[in-house]
Write a protein that binds this DNA or RNA. Structure first.
Lengths: 230, 230
DNA sequence: GACCGTATCTTGGTATACCATCCTACAAAG
DNA sequence: CTTTGTAGGATGGTATACCAAGATACGGTC
């Protein structure tokens, strides 16, 4: 590692061959996660290993490791001597998840509002555009993705990547709820307006207003979820 | 499932034979987690699967599934085409973890203070006793365990079991830091007094005071961690 | 006809075998 | 002496074989 090798490291790094670390396990993990989130397997339903092997076309080793991962993520539960099942979600769990989201997201938007510069704001504006577009198209999962993207930018801009990890994981556990709340009533229209409010506060670099808007956003979602679940 | 079978279900459930679902994998998971937390493997060090097989006396299947779990927990990172390594922890990550802990723990102690009755208070008092005892013995990991037990009671009493899951996981990621902060200077003495403060606020059913005490507790720990890490 | 035992099938737990890839070391050619 | 090609070992990825335990269905016995 001499001087000539370390100069212009960023240029040299650019021509590094992108070796897609795409292993069977990662593909399977992704598919399984999407399948569970998308409701392809119903909550409480058993996940029979050998059946999954056939369905995904991989061996049990892969399936089992994927299940371990999903188990740690909270999407799958292990029943003693009965094997894995899709985790069920009751209102009490959902309530807690919304509370935690409210706490983490509101501080994240506040942090973001504190430091956001032109670059971040431009990214957020773009995500907002996507949100409005999908919202007009009445595409719940589109809105979901756009909202997720918005928050992702917010968290990373504020230097809260670990909180983002946590929120992502929690979101996947309530994903079915999220789609349902979006499909509910006039949420399709109100969602974007609430996000817009958050964005406005960030744009004005007003942390308190951003946090408040965010809290009311999550609280509203929780209220709808409650009517669905209980 | 007739009427006679469903009456007194709680009594019947009580005499269910406790079949310890102790699988090799769970034992191995526990051992590995403790080993990493305890610093037996150093951060960034490689975890060679076959070596671990020999060390734990199990087959690779078990090791690999355990590694998947630890990966999802954040204790292990996968390097593409190089296998698993023990996750490293920088100050930026630690900073975020302490912030999240401050948020979740302070709301949890507040919730607990709101609802705590005689039973919960007795449990907490017992945990405090353990804390004082281990503290006098200058046993950092004893203090750690006692503190953990205290918080566990707090979270569960307040109906925040999901937040507890998250906090536990975060704690395991900064566990090495926690022992180090405990070993530092007069922390061994100040720790119990701060917990005592939190307990006093819960005992008085004063949510605001409890949350404030908790925040200062976590903030103090973060400050010490910062001097160690950066 | 009701109850009990057994055979079998399903399912998860565990171990092992095989393969592709990568890293390292050594040797040969310039 | 440097460089490059190659062989060998190490390592992770994947598939499969085997086993024990639980669930289920069927047949025999009272």
């Amino acid at each position: 590692m001499n001087a000539s090798m370390t100069k212009n490291p960023e240029n040299l790094a650019a021509l590094r061959i992108e070796t897609p670390p795409v292993t069977l396990r990662e593909i399977a993990l992704d598919r399984m996660r999407r399948a569970i989130i998308g409701g392809l397997f119903e909550p409480g339903g058993r996940l029979v290993e050998r059946t999954l092997c056939d369905q995904l076309g991989v061996s049990r080793s892969v399936i089992r490791e994927v299940i371990r991962h999903l188990e740690a993520e909270g999407l799958v539960e292990m029943l003693a001597k009965q094997g894995p099942i899709v985790a069920k979600l009751g209102w009490d769990d959902a309530r807690q998840i919304y509370e935690i989201r409210a706490a983490l997201e509101s501080t994240a938007v506040a942090d973001c509002a504190r430091v956001a510069g032109a670059n971040v704001k431009a990214q957020l504006r773009k995500a907002m555009g996507e949100l409005e577009r999908t919202s007009k198209q009445n595409s719940p999962i589109g809105v979901l993705d756009a909202t997720t993207e918005f928050y992702k930018i917010v968290f990373e801009a504020g230097g809260n990547n670990i909180a983002w990890e946590i929120v992502s994981r929690l979101n996947s556990r309530i994903s079915r709820l999220r789609v349902m709340t979006l499909s509910t009533s006039n949420r399709m229209a109100s969602g974007p307006s609430q996000i817009r409010e958050i964005f406005a506060a960030i744009d004005a670099n007003n942390p308190e207003a951003a946090a408040a808007a965010c809290r009311s956003h999550v609280t509203a979602a929780a209220a709808i979820a409650k009517t669905i679940l209980s």
